[in-house]
Amino acid sequence: MKSLDKPGSAPTFDSVAEFFAQALAIEIEAWERYGELADQMETHNNHVIADIFRKMAHIEGMHRDEIKRRAGDALVGGRPASFSWLAPEGPEAIDLGDVHYKMTPRQALMLARHNEERATRYFEAIAEAATDPEIKAFAQIMAEDERHHVVLVDQWLDKFDPDDPDWAEDLDPPVISE
């Protein structure tokens, strides 16, 4: 979220319901986005990256379910506050412009890591700004979840060799389709 780069811009919430709705919206967006990117990679026959994005989608999907469970009845009637289409992209969704059809696993995971870090900072900022103790507590849990995701991605990154400098090379020219 762009506003995160500016100090003091953390969103504030009127209710716990609103906070959960916001957190849920972020996870749904991230889950959808990874799914879309996995589809794109499949369409372009980059199955390694498609698998990575599919796994990330799975992780975000589990996180989404976890939030729903935690929120319980508190979610009823809640609407995302600052996060909706009204705001720029959510803190956990990869920018659609940052991918490449021949991207490497390291590049994909670095993008994922970047977004998990953004999400961590986002929830940390909420926790810090929150006056409602319940919201503060839940935001801290969320930040902890995201920090854990960063660690997971780091472990995953360790499994891959450094990128080939010619990773983007395509031996064929683009195709004319219409």
Binding site: E36, Q40, T43, L96, G97, V99, Y101
Partner: peptide
């Protein structure tokens, strides 16, 4: 599924 190149603005 879109045929647009990954990274293309049209996905957005």
């Amino acid at each position: 599924k879109p045929v647009w190149c990954p990274g293309c603005g049209d996905h957005s």
